[in-house]
């Protein structure tokens, strides 16, 4: 059992979420290995964001269990959340703050030691290409830079799991490429979940792909496995998500 905990950094088993009578996420299982980049695909409204909100502890699942690095997210939320860095769809930025102030607050919020804050701040600014932006007000920055601040916030405490909800939306092609390079880089030492609906992005950075449709998981396959089967991601995606009654495993 211990080995499994080390092996899987995140394990969500059969989680389900109901909004009244509507089921947003149905029997969703997700397991993330250390050093793996998982692409979570799906059309709009498939339940990706709801699933991610549950995994990050923003939303309680109606049923099912979530374990983060062997810690039960529902039982010990604070201990579990310390392992997660989360960038929601809309980056949670205080526009009145400068980059430094904002990141310092994020660092304190994640209980980084006082002595280490300055170092962590420099390190993550360097990583996200914000080194010379420290004194700029977040409100005056472009969308791409704001997105980078959002990522910086998610990695400042060096979490084991990084969850990015559509991180490349609204970026220009150059920024998109940089963002992908950053995600690949992060994926070397940590587990990353990347939610997106850009298929090429998944193909270029992810090791494994899960497709969601109507709140269900309709595909869970490694990219290597897909290539082996000679299947095209786009065709698979269209086949699985245009079908009114999706095939479940």
């Amino acid at each position: 059992m211990k080995d499994e905990c080390d092996y899987f950094t995140l394990s969500a088993q059969h989680i389900q979420r109901n909004y009244g009578a509507r089921i947003a996420v149905y029997d969703f299982t997700l397991q993330l290995k250390k050093g793996e980049v998982l692409g979570l695909l799906g059309p709009n409204g498939a339940g990706k964001t709801t699933a991610l909100r549950m995994i990050t502890g923003n939303l309680a699942p109606s049923s099912g269990s979530i374990e983060v690095c062997g810690v039960d997210l529902l039982g010990e939320p604070q201990k579990a959340k310390a392992h997660i860095g989360y960038l929601p769809e809309i980056p949670p930025l205080y526009l009145d703050m400068t980059v430094n102030e904002y990141l310092r607050f994020a660092a304190r919020l994640h209980r980084i030691d006082k002595q280490r804050i300055a170092h962590a701040l420099e390190h993550c600014k360097q990583r996200c290409g914000l080194a010379d932006r420290g004194k700029q007000l977040i409100g005056t920055m472009s969308k791409g830079l704001q997105q980078r601040v959002g990522i910086a916030q998610a990695i400042i405490h060096e979490p084991d799991i990084i969850i990015l909800d559509e991180p490349t939306v609204g970026l220009d092609p150059n920024q998109m490429r940089e963002m992908r390079a950053l995600i690949r880089d992060l994926g070397k030492s940590r587990s990353v979940i990347l939610s997106t609906h850009i298929l090429s992005e998944v193909e270029s950075v992810c090791d494994r792909v899960q497709i969601m449709h109507d709140g269900r998981m309709v595909l869970n396959e490694t990219l290597a496995g897909l290539r082996q089967k000679d299947a095209d991601l786009e065709m698979e995606f269209t086949r699985l998500t245009q079908n009114p009654q999706p095939i479940t495993h």
Partner: peptide
Amino acid sequence: KSHTLTLLLSAPVS
């Protein structure tokens, strides 16, 4: 409204 509540709720803070 500015979606920053998520930052507080995702952090290891009760």
